[in-house]
């Protein structure tokens, strides 16, 4: 792991589901501290791409490096990368049989071998950061969707990762809860966390992204800073997509 190397470097990435090609020759570089937002219509391969970064999906061609470490057949490199890459899911995926605090301390204690007291202190710090320290003793089923997603972010942070991946973090939320999750994400961005977000929240993209990437049909169509991306998109497909997302 070499923190001077690019945080994420993807070259010519291919991914197939049977005969269907989900990703076609993706190239992407994310620098340390950079915030990248990925958008695109459903089925465009954006979730598949970020799920390849921590090997929830195995890629079929090309290469992925995280801080210089190549993701390959080597089990060690997969473990290493997963330790440094946190992920937040659309469906939260909190462990329902554990309390909020246990959700947050499980991985640090098992993977990083942090002592319990220290893990709990770290967890409480991050729960405070996502503004729900008072819910630490509750079970996920007793929380609202927005609260659950904030716990999920805290859980990912407790591993103190270098990079956070967000896979449509607000898509499963009721409209009134989206803001509380986005607020947390904005705070993280301002603190310099390296973030790759798949999201349809264009306001969020405009506010925090260093770069916005538009994907369609398994390919990267357009890649630009938010100002340029929203105000002067180059591709016809981007323009069509933006008009559909922003149009109403």
């Amino acid at each position: 792991m070499d923190l001077t190397a690019p945080a994420i470097e993807i070259r010519n990435l291919d991914k197939y589901y049977g005969a269907f090609q989900a990703l076609r020759g993706i190239d992407l570089r994310v620098a340390r501290g950079e915030r990248v937002v990925i958008c695109g219509p459903s089925g465009s391969g954006k979730s598949t791409m970020i799920r390849c970064i921590n090997q929830l999906e195995e890629h079929d061609g090309g290469e992925i490096r995280v801080f210089g470490t190549l993701l390959d057949d080597n089990l060690g490199s997969i473990d290493e990368i997963r330790r440094e890459v946190g992920m937040v899911f659309q469906q939260f995926n909190l462990f329902p049989h554990m309390t909020v605090l246990e959700n947050c301390t499980l991985a640090p204690m098992l993977v990083r071998r942090t002592p319990r007291t220290e893990a709990e202190a770290v967890a409480m710090r991050y729960l405070e950061k996502v503004r729900i320290p008072d819910q630490a003793g509750k079970y996920p089923g007793q929380l609202s969707g927005g609260q659950q997603q904030r716990v999920a972010i805290a859980r990912a942070l407790c591993m103190q990762p270098e990079i956070l991946l967000f896979d449509e973090p607000t898509s499963a939320l009721d409209p009134e809860m989206i803001a509380e999750v986005l607020d947390v994400m904005v705070t993280l961005a301002q603190e310099g966390m390296t973030m790759v977000c798949v999201t349809h929240e264009m306001g969020f993209a405009r506010k925090v992204a260093d770069r916005v990437i538009f994907m369609d049909n398994g390919e990267i169509i357009e890649e630009a800073p938010p100002g340029e991306f929203f105000d002067a998109p180059k591709s016809e497909r981007t323009r069509l997509f933006l008009s559909q997302v922003l149009g109403h």
């Binding site: 190549l70 390959d72 057949d73 080597n74 089990l75 060690g76 490199s77 997969i78």
Partner: peptide
């Protein structure tokens, strides 16, 4: 890039 040791290779292990 050195090849991973045999016992850490996912496919060899499988």
């Amino acid at each position: 890039m050195a090849a991973p040791p045999l016992w850490r290779s996912k496919s060899t292990r499988a």
